[in-house]
Computed example of a mutant assay.
Amino acid sequence: MTVPDDVETFAATVGPERDAVLEEMDERAAETGFPTVGPVVGGWLQQFAGLVDAERVFEFGSGFGYSAYWFARGLPADGEVVLTEVDEDELDDAREYLERGGYADRARFELGDAIETVDDYEAPVDVVLIDNEKDRYVEAFEAVREKVPVGGVVLADNMTAGPFDFEEIHRLVVEGGDSDDANATGVADYLARVGGDDDFVTTLLALGEGVAVSRRVS
């Protein structure tokens, strides 16, 4: 399920204005089909960083740096967004974009598996974005959970759209049962995991491809 184009366009108009680097990144995503959160969700990433007064953001999967760029815009000058990526070329591109935008000084670039990388970072991690392999979402949450302070948020992309049919994820979440689709199962398992965690309150941001927002309350 995706949000109607006119709603997305309206939301983008209301949201933070993109700079030239973000416009270029959006053009790249459109031309290549590379999956990004898009400008509407991007504006919310910037907003979340500011709302929780984030000093550190950690990303599970960064691609060429699109979401990290939005996060960096919401961080203080001494803040830090940690990008993780297994593709060295994409990570190099991310570094170039953030340098051109003037945000490289608040970014750290980690080549390798994000779930292994997060062990190197001590708490607090104020904002987390989970956007790696869908069947590893629960694993990512478990790896970072204890590093998130009260008031911090964990965001997970692709809750309503992605490499699966919405009907399948809807069935799994609402009706339960099993599925041969590992991606849909991974997302459903993630929603069950965070939804059953008494230390977090989870809601759905129904923009882009759907973002689960889990705020730590205890």
Rank of each mutant, 00 (worst) to 15 (best):
A188G: 01
H170W: 03
T203K: 02
D198P: 08
V187Q: 01
V187P: 00
G176F: 04
A182V: 09
L191R: 04
D199T: 07
N183W: 00
E175K: 06
G186P: 15
D181R: 04
D199L: 02
E175T: 04
I169T: 07
V187S: 07
D199K: 04
R193Q: 06
A184S: 12
D189C: 04
D198Y: 13
D198C: 05
H170M: 12
G186A: 13
V174T: 13
A188N: 02
D197C: 03
V187H: 01
D178K: 11
A182L: 13
D181Y: 05
L172Q: 04
D197T: 07
V194Y: 00
T202G: 08
T185F: 02
D180M: 03
E168V: 10
R193D: 14
E168W: 00
D180S: 05
F200A: 12
D178L: 11
V173F: 09
G195F: 15
D198W: 06
V187N: 02
E168Q: 08
T203C: 10
V173Q: 11
L204K: 11
G177I: 13
N183D: 14
V194Q: 03
G186W: 00
G186V: 03
D178I: 06
V194T: 11
D180I: 12
L204S: 10
G176C: 08
D197P: 01
L172H: 01
F200T: 06
D181C: 03
S179Y: 10
G177K: 09
D197W: 03
L204H: 13
V187E: 01
G195P: 11
E168F: 00
